[in-house]
């Protein structure tokens, strides 16, 4: 199966099983309701053969009012990617969007690699992952204050006494 065929099959699967608008395919994958995050990952892993855990990318979006539009409140967006191995390898990607303060359900029960990736995103961006087995900081020291990849964190922030 080529990558294009896999893509078409994935879009059809997501529309049919999860009722997601996946045609045309948006950049970075469709936005899936948070409640279906784990179910979707499990279905892709078990049924469509997306067994390789690829990435977890969280991004922070502050309050924004587009020109002539309504206010988009502050939120986090978490993108996840799974890959099928072998010929015609293809990445299944989707995103979930949560308001600040709410958590994203963890994938650590399905993929062992989600443990560290989610810890990293929690450390740097500040998204909380619900039911994570070991949610600690990964990169920065334990006593660090703040999450550096948030848009309201200044790049030059010091850390005494060393900086």
């Amino acid at each position: 199966m080529t990558a294009d065929e896999r893509q078409a099959r994935l879009a059809a699967f997501m529309t049919e099983r999860f009722g997601v608008e996946a045609d045309p395919w948006p950049d970075g994958g469709p936005i899936v309701p948070v409640e279906q995050h784990v179910a979707l990952a499990a279905a892709l892993q078990a049924e469509l053969g997306y067994t390789l855990y690829v990435y977890c990318v969280a991004s922070h979006w502050p309050d924004e009012t587009p020109k002539g539009g309504d206010l988009i409140p502050e939120h986090y967006e978490v993108a996840t990617g799974l890959r099928s191995v072998g010929a015609g390898s293809h990445v299944a990607m989707w995103r979930v969007s949560v308001p600040v303060g709410a958590g994203v359900p963890t994938l650590a029960d399905l993929f062992a690699g989600a443990d560290w990736q989610e810890r990293e995103q929690y450390d740097l961006v500040g998204v909380v992952f619900d039911d994570h087995p070991d949610l600690r900081r990964l990169m920065l020291p334990e006593e660090w204050v703040g999450h550096p990849l948030r848009k309201d964190y200044a790049i030059e922030t010091g850390h005494l006494p060393w900086r």
Binding site: Y53, L110, G113
Partner: peptide
């Protein structure tokens, strides 16, 4: 199975 779940790639996988 562990290698795929962890996202190991390249020579290790």
């Amino acid at each position: 199975e562990l290698a795929l779940g962890l996202g190991l790639t390249g020579p290790v996988l």
